[in-house]
């Protein structure tokens, strides 16, 4: 299944609706759907909030497919080049008063997915994720 999101945070609601439909079609558990949703949400939110130097409308393409017991996702956008998986992992053991606000999103994506890959293809960021069911 394939769909396109605009660079507006209100699109997160549509992301959730699309993924629910996908989960239903592929008979995934609600928990899996929520996990896929969270991982995609975190990446899409980063792109919308920090990815675009030019204002105006941009689109983010999402492709999601079930292959046997694996769900494969491809996320594609024309935002500025950024490898989300290059960032240092936050220290989640640290005391709450010392923890910076932020840096958690990509950490969650890594926790929820089995593989996370990034590549720059021309003027596009391509993120590939997979999750074993």
């Amino acid at each position: 299944m394939r769909f396109t999101l605009k660079n507006d945070l209100s699109e997160l609601n549509r992301l959730a609706t699309e993924l629910e439909a996908f989960g239903q079609a592929e008979s995934l558990s609600p928990q899996t759907v929520q996990q896929l949703n969270l991982a995609l949400d975190e990446l899409v939110t980063n792109t919308i909030n920090y990815g675009y130097e030019q204002p105006g409308q941009h689109s983010i393409e999402v492709e999601i497919e079930r292959k046997g017991d694996v769900v494969e996702i491809c996320l594609c956008d024309n935002a500025k080049a950024f490898d989300p998986f290059s960032a240092k992992e936050p220290d989640i053991e640290a005391d709450i008063d010392d923890r910076p606000i932020g840096g958690l999103g990509v950490f969650l994506v890594r926790k929820l997915m089995d593989t996370c890959d990034y590549r720059r293809k021309g003027d596009r960021n391509v993120v590939q994720l997979s999750k074993k069911l």
Binding site: A16, Q34, N37, L38, D41, E42, T45, I96, D97, R99, I101, G102, L104, G105, F107, L108
Partner: peptide, 19 residues
């Protein structure tokens, strides 16, 4: 029904502001 890191960010910011 749903929480993402953006939500946690507000929880943490509120916690710190209250502190």
């Amino acid at each position: 029904s749903y929480l993402s890191s953006a939500g946690i960010r507000v929880l943490l910011a509120t916690y710190k502001a209250q502190n």
